[in-house]
Design a protein around this nucleic acid. Structure first.
Length: 797
DNA sequence: ATCCTGATTTTTTTT
DNA sequence: AAATCAGGAT
């Protein structure tokens, strides 16, 4: 090899990397497994490796496929690589699996019987379609929810089982029924020229399996494939990689497939952070990588640059309770730092007040709000926190939750565009035909749709000739004709390929959508109009960056469909960040609160039912390792769930943390004399963490920003959020008792025993479960409830 | 076809 | 506690 003209840059590129990091970055051809512990500089290795490949001419930008878990991560990585390279990464495929598949399918769709304009259905669309198919099969909707059925279908698709093979493989009546629905669901999707999220993966695999030449072409194009968060890939994604790079183990069934290929696959992941099993991620993909590629180079990144030793020790201690996994020993040089603060509170309101109080204190001491994150297990838990933050006038943002693109008006607007692009798209048609109200109700709608299916034409064609539709009333015919007149006009705009922003405005105006909202004259409707204006803005931005060439509408729709968290600003505005633990993956904050550390909440009871304790523990591990300097773990003794009060015990994960790492706030541990929040050593903490800027989310994150001016800051009375009635007091008494003396251990209850509850009255014990839970059926309303025996106000009678 | 109301359900986690 | 849904009244 001749002297590299970029030698200087190369030097620079490798500077500041530790030994294993450098090994991973400079690895040449062949399979590479990077086991990257939390905070070990994984993103750094990935970006540097990408730059390295380009610098050393091992690959052109266009010959690299780099897969990330989210759009946001892709965007961040792209800008970091560009900074390293000092030039654009145009041509590099740096995106999520779904986006890459959508792009491939956009080009190759006709081979699979779709047009290039196929619509991508999100989960809500998919569920709606599932429900329709369930109705058609005659499934009792009381017994099974569309969500449950669709989950089954989704899981089948992720295992690459089509409706037929799924049907052959299953035996139970429930599964037979699912298979039936699955068949119709597939038929409808194809008919509508639409794909759901899972199809993007599945159909791409189909494409590459069916057309050898296509596979070879993509395989040759992507000379290097890199995958981030490999521990969270599912089987379809696994198979896709196999097809692209060659090698890998045989598919689940059928004969081994020895796909030839370059095998230049580099994967990065951490089995301890696998938290998407519920989405069919298969942790075996990373555990078995060395079996798939026996000659793989394996690099372990074990030095943590993020957290204090205290935080890291806690994380290690907790994760040690999981069986199996790949041995790693994470270490840090950042010193012990502050102890972990564990705090018990009476209820979720007190918890929120505590968290917000601490935030106020930290900010007063000079911390920036952007350095603080509050994490919780479920989205619903953000509400109380938000209320409290608003009351104290602290600016915050919520990541995830109700997403911009899930709002009804946004989905309506997108549906208009989708139907204009894809006249077969029944789901979109169904959504918009009577929105705003045009007098075309359920009955007429069914007639139109079934007519189109019977005759075998698109819904568009069917709707365009209303008088041909049997049974359609005169009023409906008239309304439909008027509607279609508008749509035909808009369709002409599409054919002229006008900018999407203009098209969208025309749609909203001519369809009478904005007009109808304004007629409502409510604040809510005004907000919807504003959201729509924001969407028009998004479209205009898209237009500005798009090629003037054709297909702009299709590309826009594709992009929008795959944005899970879009929207705008977030950083440097002084916002505290709230999000679920899942959303926190890959992020870091100097101060982190993990709220709701109660058994049943976290670990979540539903996850426990499904044997997902280890995954919950990994999620806890992810949460803990987000913290750089200070970690708070809070739990509430009492919490409203579905509006009813429930009593909780501290999360079992709390007891898995060695006591010497905490300030001793766990119930039962009692006070240890040290004032809360005061460090053992009192030493100042490092102000910044070595080379790693204090990062929050990058600016492409979608965020709901609320910083309203409330009428009042909190009143001095801290009696709590209302409801201080008799039995709440009784509950508190009971909860306090739990800390000191033995309450009533669950084991002391017998099945069939009569009990009396302070609020629910008389009942009978129908079950005793592990974790101190008893199940009681109450005479009053016949309800069956799970209670924490030690805390619930129950007594024998 | 639309509106109203009471009943039921919802809270895992997300590309 | 809130949101969605079904069924019935208008």
């Amino acid at each position: 090899m001749t002297a590299n003209p970029h030698a200087e840059h190369l030097q620079e590129l490798l500077e500041g990397l530790n030994e294993p990091q450098r090994e991973a970055v400079t690895h040449g051809e062949g399979p590479l497994l990077i086991l990257a512990g939390a905070g070990s500089g994984k993103t750094r290795v990935l970006t540097h490796r990408l730059a390295f490949l380009v610098y050393t001419d091992q690959a052109q930008a266009g010959e690299i496929l780099a897969i990330t878990f989210t759009n946001k991560a892709a965007g961040e990585m792209r800008s970091r690589v560009e900074r390293l390279l000092g030039r654009s990464t145009r041509g590099m495929w740096l995106m999520t699996f779904h986006a890459a598949c959508a792009r491939i399918l956009r080009a190759e769709a006709p081979r699979l019987g779709y047009t290039r304009q196929f619509t991508i259905y999100d989960q809500a669309d998919a569920r709606r379609l599932t429900k329709r198919c369930m109705d058609e099969v005659g499934v009792d909707p009381k017994r099974y929810t569309p969500a449950a059925i669709h989950n089954q279908i989704s899981s089948a698709k992720n295992r690459l089982l089509d409706a037929e093979s799924y049907g052959q493989q299953v035996g139970a009546p429930f599964e037979e029924m699912v298979a039936e629905v699955y068949r119709l669901y597939e038929r409808d999707l194809l008919r509508m020229n639409a794909m759901d999220f899972d199809d993007l993966l599945l159909r791409t695999v189909n494409l590459l399996e069916l057309f050898g030449a296509v596979r070879e072409s993509y395989s040759a194009t992507f000379r290097h494939v890199l995958v981030d968060e490999y521990q969270d890939t599912n089987h379809a994604q696994y198979r896709l990689l196999q097809l692209l790079v060659g090698g890998g183990r045989a598919p689940a069934r059928g004969e081994p497939v020895h796909t030839p290929g370059h095998r230049n696959l580099a994967v990065v992941g951490d089995d301890a952070q696998s938290i998407y099993g519920f989405r069919n991620a298969d942790i075996r993909n990373i555990l078995d990588f060395q079996d798939d590629f026996p000659d793989a180079r394996v690099v372990k990144l074990e030095q943590n640059y993020r957290s204090t030793e205290t935080i890291l020790s806690a994380a290690n201690a907790v994760i040690a309770n999981n069986r199996g996994g790949i041995a790693k020993r994470l270490w840090s040089e950042l010193g012990a730092g502050e102890p972990i603060r564990v705090q018990a509170l009476d209820d979720e309101h007190a918890e929120a007040r505590f968290v917000v109080g601490e935030i106020e204190r930290l900010v007063e001491e000079g911390a920036s709000r952007t350095e603080i994150a509050v994490l919780y297990r479920t989205n619903a838990m953000s509400r109380v926190l938000e209320d409290t933050l608003v009351r104290r006038e602290i600016a915050y943002q919520v990541i995830g939750g109700t997403k911009f693109y899930e709002r009804a008006e946004i989905k309506d607007a997108i549906a208009y565009l989708s139907w204009l692009a894809n006249p077969f798209d029944v789901v979109s048609f169904t959504r918009i035909v009577n929105s705003p109200r045009r007098g075309i109700g359920q009955t007429s709608l069914s007639r139109i749709v079934s007519h189109s299916a019977t005759v075998g034409v698109s819904v568009w064609e069917a709707a365009a000739e209303p008088e041909q539709i049997p049974g359609l009333g005169a009023a409906a015919v008239k309304a439909l004709r008027r509607f279609m007149g508008t749509m035909e006009e808009l369709r002409e705009h599409v054919e002229q390929n006008i900018p999407v922003g203009d098209l969208l405005e025309a749609v909203l105006a001519q369809a009478g959508y904005v007009e109808a909202l304004e007629a409502e004259r409510t604040i809510e409707a005004q907000g919807r109009v504003e959201n729509l204006q924001q969407l028009v803005e998004v479209a205009r931005e898209f237009d500005a960056g798009a090629d003037a060439e054709a297909d702009t509408l299709d590309l826009f729709l594709q992009q929008v469909a795959l944005i899970a968290d879009a929207d705008t600003r977030s950083d440097d505005e002084g916002l505290v960040t709230l999000m679920t633990l899942h959303n926190a993956k890959g992020l870091e904050y100097p101060t982190v609160f993990i709220t709701g550390c109660e058994d049943g909440v976290f670990p979540h009871s539903r996850a426990l039912d499904e044997g997902g304790l280890e995954e919950e523990r990994r999620l806890f591990y992810v949460g803990v390792t987000r913290a750089m300097r200070q970690l708070y773990l809070t739990y509430a003794r009492r919490r409203a769930i579905f509006g009813a009060q429930a009593y909780g015990l501290p999360s079992r994960f709390l007891s898995e943390i060695p006591a010497e790492l905490t300030d001793g706030g766990v119930d039962g541990g009692g006070l240890d004399g040290r004032p809360a929040g005061v460090g053992i050593d009192g030493r100042p903490l490092p102000a910044s963490v070595d080379g790693y800027p204090i990062s929050a989310r990058d600016s492409r994150v979608r965020a709901r920003v609320r910083a309203r001016t409330p009428p009042f800051a909190n009143t001095s009375s801290s009696r709590g959020g209302g409801g201080d009635n008799g039995w709440a007091a009784a509950a508190r008494a009971s909860a306090e008792r739990g800390g000191a003396g033995p309450g009533l251990p669950a084991e002391s209850f017998r099945l069939g025993e009569d009990v009396l509850h302070a609020a629910f009255g008389e009942g009978v014990v129908t079950g005793v479960e592990p974790g101190g839970v008893i199940v009681v059926r109450f005479a009053g309303d016949g309800s069956e409830r799970k209670l924490m025996a030690e805390y619930a106000p129950v007594s024998r009678r």
